[in-house]
Simulated scan of single mutants.
Amino acid sequence: MLDFDPLYSTQQVEAIERSINQHYSLTGPVSCQMLQRGLNDVYLAVGSNGERYVFRLSHRRARGPADVKTETAFLTHLTQSGVPVAAPIPTRDGALFLQGYAPEGAREGVLFRALDGRKPQATDAGDARANGKTLALMHNAAEAFSPDGALYRLDLEHLLHRPLARIRDSGIVEDADVRSDLEQIAARTAMAIDAFGNLTWTYCHGDCHGFNARISDAGEAVFFDFDDGGPGYLAYDLSVFLWAQVSFGRSSTAMWDAFIDSYRAVRPITPDDFEAALRFVIVRHVWLMGEYASRAQEWGSETVGWIAREADFLKTWEMEQFVDRLF
């Protein structure tokens, strides 16, 4: 007989429905359908009165458990501060998240009201400006939030060094020269960021690439998906939007300009934070590579094999942006 030890299990939709109906005071029973399986499991839940909700079941990740306690506390703070975000819905007992046990271990669930509005468009400068404004409002509100007990700090250890180790340990990058390139780029990037010395620290969204939002009828970007957030570098939070404009073959910065102009209309950016954001593009890419590398056993080496080809992007970005500071 085979001895199974699952890395990741998918829950029956009926079990998700039962959990929501048991723990939340909604109008009538809900019916669910899975929207997404992967980094997290995401379900659309529809009540008997047509009300729509989103239930997110956190994935067990290499970083450790999902920090839903800090995340939901921050979202509640943002809602109370008037920042447009998808706020968590409390259970009958007033809790902002649930915890259950799958074959692979504990997993956490959060219920949100589904957002109205449309998906942002990649080439719409108005949508880029809306994202910049909401991120600035979020960072302003974050100044009055204390992330006591946060499980993760979005520092270089979390965003760069550990992901690089996951890439190395996964065996996906077989070429020793490519591994050496990645390590040298990471070392130079860390040294350059450390040299700033006075970068702004805030509570980060962590994944503000422009599409973790819905654009309301009023033109606001309403944010969701704070799963990768936490206390960290403001420059990193800015850089994710730029990274989305220049990675994986993209080369447009017009949306970045619109995003930054709108951000600055609400909140100033120090010269060091702006300059560091260019460096953090590399950090963001290595972080993503590390996330995928950590799932090689779950998703398969072919699914994550693109990681081995990404040194060229990092070298090109470094050379184009910082060639006068490399030597």
Rank of each mutant, 00 (worst) to 15 (best):
L26S: 06
G230T: 10
F224P: 07
G229I: 05
G219L: 00
I16T: 00
A73M: 08
L78T: 01
L159Y: 11
D228G: 13
L111H: 02
Q99F: 09
R60I: 12
G132K: 06
D116P: 11
F226I: 08
K133W: 10
D228L: 15
G171S: 11
R153F: 09
F55G: 03
E14R: 13
G50Y: 01
F4G: 10
G109V: 01
L26F: 01
R250K: 14
Y8L: 09
S19Y: 10
A141S: 06
T70K: 02
V240P: 05
A141M: 00
R168A: 14
R61D: 15
A144V: 06
E104T: 05
R279K: 11
Q22S: 04
F145K: 01
A130Q: 06
D41L: 08
G47Q: 07
V286L: 13
T70M: 13
G290D: 10
A62D: 09
S251Y: 12
I20V: 08
A128W: 03
D217H: 12
Y236F: 14
H59E: 10
S170W: 05
V42Q: 06
A265N: 13
N131G: 04
G132H: 09
G232L: 06
D312F: 12
F224G: 05
L182R: 05
F241V: 08
D227E: 14
A15K: 13
W317A: 04
F280G: 10
H77E: 05
M255D: 06
A311F: 07
V13L: 15
G47I: 03
V54D: 00
A122L: 12
R56S: 07
A142M: 07
D181W: 10
R166H: 14
D217V: 09
R264Q: 15
Q121L: 10
A142F: 03
F145T: 02
L135M: 04
H209N: 06
S216Q: 05
D228H: 11
A86Y: 01
V283S: 03
S251V: 10
A150Y: 11
A195R: 13
I215C: 03
Q297R: 12
E275F: 08
I260H: 10
I307T: 08
V304E: 02
L7P: 08
F248R: 14
C204M: 07
L57R: 07
S301M: 15
I215L: 04
T303Y: 12
L137D: 07
L44R: 14
F196I: 08
F4W: 14
H209S: 03
T134N: 06
R113T: 09
A276K: 09
S9W: 12
Q80Y: 11
A213I: 06
K119L: 14
F97P: 01
H209V: 02
A276C: 11
R279D: 09
D273Q: 04
A265K: 10
R325K: 11
V323I: 15
G82R: 05
F322M: 04
E275L: 14
P65Q: 12
A213T: 09
R325I: 06
E275Y: 11
L98E: 06
I282T: 13
H209P: 01
L242I: 05
R118P: 01
I215K: 02
L238V: 05
E157M: 15
A150F: 09
H205C: 08
I193P: 01
H139G: 00
Q245R: 12
E108K: 15
R37S: 15
L199P: 04
M1A: 10
D177R: 14
F145Q: 00
A192P: 00
I260A: 13
V30M: 00
F313V: 04
